[in-house]
Write a protein that binds this DNA or RNA. Structure first.
Lengths: 207, 207
DNA sequence: TTTTGTGAAGTTTTTCACAGCG
DNA sequence: CGCTGTGAAAAACTTCACAAAA
């Protein structure tokens, strides 16, 4: 069955919330309580969870530890994902130090940049190569996913040089521009200025 | 009329694309061409633009400069938005130096942190205050929107102290946690690990 | 002829409402 | 009795298909 993107996003939120509730010692949680904590309708929570089998207990709710494990399985990788990061600027560096990344599930193995000051060194303990050698390095290191944090004017060129690698499966694009890729490569965009503009658009509406 | 969130997001993409086409000297563009450049259906582009009146020319397409101005108006603020940023860590600092922010439309006026090394200083030329004084400072400086880049365990406390300010209208939340706010305050979440997890979920599916 | 603008159709996603089970 | 699981209904969003305009 095909699971909708919005559902997957919420599964991550449920997973995160359950880790918190578990750490706080809570044993059982209802769809209503989860909804309240995540600003979602209880029926939405139940519908999302129902796609993966009956996991709750009627009249009781969901067992926190059990549901957490269940979601962990759904979201778990076939093996630890190997990622590379292209563009070790401010944002790229911030992501390298980002605490919320789940280091059991994936790791940033390789960096790329075009700055010769950075190339050849280790940054946060991760080797940095020149972007021109990306294809060979990505193949040699079995990189599955690239995080792209380059300026928008460099984005498509970077993409064009990395999509030729045959092992690459996905790109998380932070560059504020649309990139064009072959259809066998998945792209998700994290577009910070789009999110800010959306917020400002609706803030304006309610004034 | 209520404009859907997905439409607003695409308007920002159109606006950005038109700036680029304009800079490249292109005079006219069709919905088909815009769709191709942004990986969207032509009919989607036309439908989105049609919500704001007839702006294209049948048989010709859209006049680049005119459509750009049109979108500029739609997305323009009533005045330059005044923003504050809470949490001057790696991610917060990266955003302070972020090139893609449209500095004509909004500016980051004030910073907040709980690190006494930062409080009282200017960072990137912007004064930094202690988070405990957020409410007074936000009111005094007429801050409309807060960018929240604090660790997840601090997020709700920060939110609770800033939502009491009466001028605050919206929060752009980068913390990897759900925050609960009064209903008159708009929240948009930029959840980096959720986006990465979504990508990895679908990468797994196609393997 | 080309390409827009747009009702209508189609698709997806969310919400409802209640049967079913512990 | 309370809360889940889930068809069915409603809402939201996208795509189609074509009339109308340049």
């Amino acid at each position: 069955m095909k699971i909708a993107e919005a559902t997957v996003a919420r599964l991550v939120l449920y997973h995160r919330l359950l880790a918190k509730l578990h750490a706080e010692g809570q044993k059982v949680v209802s769809s209503q309580e989860m909804g309240k904590l995540l600003s979602l309708k209880a029926s939405q929570v139940r519908k999302d969870l129902s796609y993966f089998g009956e996991i709750g207990k009627r009249g009781v709710g969901y067992h926190v530890a059990k549901l957490y494990e269940h979601l962990d399985d759904i979201l778990s990788p076939p093996q630890k994902w190997r990622m590379g990061l292209v563009g070790v600027g401010h944002l790229g560096s911030a992501l390298l130090g980002y605490k919320a990344f789940d280091t059991k599930k994936y790791g940033i193995e390789i960096l790329f940049d075009n700055d010769l000051e950075k190339v050849g060194n280790e940054i946060f303990g991760i080797p940095c190569y020149h972007i021109d050698h990306a294809c060979r390095i990505i193949n040699e290191n079995n990189i599955d996913v690239i995080i792209l944090t380059v300026p928008s004017n460099a984005a498509q060129d970077c993409v064009d040089s990395i999509v030729k690698c045959n092992g690459l499966k996905g790109i998380l694009n932070f560059s504020p521009t649309s990139i064009i890729v072959p259809e066998d490569i998945l792209v998700y965009n994290v577009d910070i200025s789009v999110e800010l503009e959306k917020l400002l658009f609706y803030v304006k509406q309610i004034m």
